[in-house]
């Protein structure tokens, strides 16, 4: 059994206006999640990526049991997180995308409150030490920095030693040190067998942390797999500048290139042969390739390409046009 199972999940928000509800008219509201399926194995770190409004938080909230799916089923530890709340909650930890603590309570008071509503809780002090807030216990929540608030939220998500941990943008607002600490902490939890589902804007974070990931776009999953698999679907890239007087048209035909003035970008799934052809052609023709770079796709490139494709109307067809040499 997988720790998290999502099958055909849809989530629709009710629209405020009901005037348009004539016979035959589509239901009002906004469909934030449009039929997605994925599963997270026990002890795995799974990252959900996507631009703002892609449907990540809407998905995670259903998994956290805060909302009922409009269609489809979700299972967390084999249970319905909405209907079987009393069974699921003691085994999950949740960090919402933002806020959630009274601003006038101190860090210690907040942790004590949360420990009080959690069975088998760690001592509050221990949880705060885990995230490096041990020295800030007397500070009111409103005086914490954005990053410190995220640390506090993380500490409380961990206080019940959860089997499944939901982290919605855990490192947003954290400084690089905080992000590194959090990544280490999450890895440590995985080593203990905790299943982690996280959303993030930091792609290198997902690339380094996640065992598997899914990229969401407009409510659908458009790419998924291990970071390597997702990246492998994207072309590698060779960039260089041609010397004046060498027209891009003279490049070997086996290397499909897009040129912008003298700058040339080659996108290819066959990096090594393409690079070999290019370099042999350059030697035979005595051409110096300035600023030559060749690199495999990164998750960031993959992500941006998917996001841009989604933003373009009728995407897919227009890309060829854009890559025609100038």
């Amino acid at each position: 059994m997988d720790a998290i199972e999502v099958e055909g999940l849809k989530r629709r928000y009710a629209g405020p206006v009901r005037a348009g509800r004539r016979a035959g008219a589509a239901e009002g509201g906004f469909e934030a999640v449009r039929d997605i399926s994925f599963s997270v194995r026990e002890g795995e770190i799974f990252a959900l990526l996507g631009t703002n409004g892609a449907g990540k938080t809407s998905t995670v909230e259903v998994l956290e049991g805060l909302a009922r799916p409009s269609a489809g089923t979700v299972r967390v530890l084999g249970l319905d997180p909405f209907g079987e709340r009393a069974l699921v909650r003691p085994r999950t930890g949740v960090m919402l995308q933002e806020g959630g603590f009274p601003s006038e309570l101190t860090v210690a008071e907040t942790a004590a409150m949360w420990a009080g509503v959690t069975s088998d809780a760690r001592p509050p002090g221990e949880a705060l030490e885990l995230v490096g807030l041990g020295g800030r216990t007397g500070v009111r929540v409103k005086q914490l920095s954005g990053g410190e608030r995220r640390r506090l939220d993380l500490a409380l998500a961990l206080i019940g030693r959860p089997e499944v941990l939901f982290l919605d943008e855990p490192t947003t607002g954290m400084d690089p040190e905080g992000r590194r600490d959090t990544a280490d902490l999450v890895r440590g939890l995985r080593a203990e067998g905790t299943t982690v589902l996280l959303t993030t804007h930091y792609l290198e974070e997902a690339e380094q942390l996640a065992d598997r990931l899914a990229i969401m776009q407009a409510g659908r999953i458009v790419a998924s797999g291990t970071p390597d698999q997702v990246v492998a679907q994207r072309p590698s890239r060779i960039t260089f500048r041609l010397p004046a007087g060498v027209a891009p048209e003279r490049l070997p035909l086996s290397v499909p290139a897009a040129a912008d003035g003298r700058s040339v970008t080659v996108k290819t799934h066959e990096l090594q042969p393409a690079l070999t052809d290019l370099l042999l052609w350059a030697r035979e023709n005595g051409v110096a390739l300035e600023g030559l770079q060749a690199r495999s796709a990164s998750l960031e490139e993959a992500f941006l390409e998917i996001a841009q494709a989604g933003n373009r109307p009728g995407h897919g067809d227009e890309r060829a046009v854009m890559e025609v040499p100038a």
């Binding site: 805060l66 003691p90 949740v94 919402l96 806020g99 959630g100 509503v117």
Partner: peptide, 20 residues
Amino acid sequence: GRREELVLKRLRTGEAADGE
């Protein structure tokens, strides 16, 4: 106030029941 600070939402992710 608790609702607008998202405290109620956060509490519902924990073990406390709505009535509690």
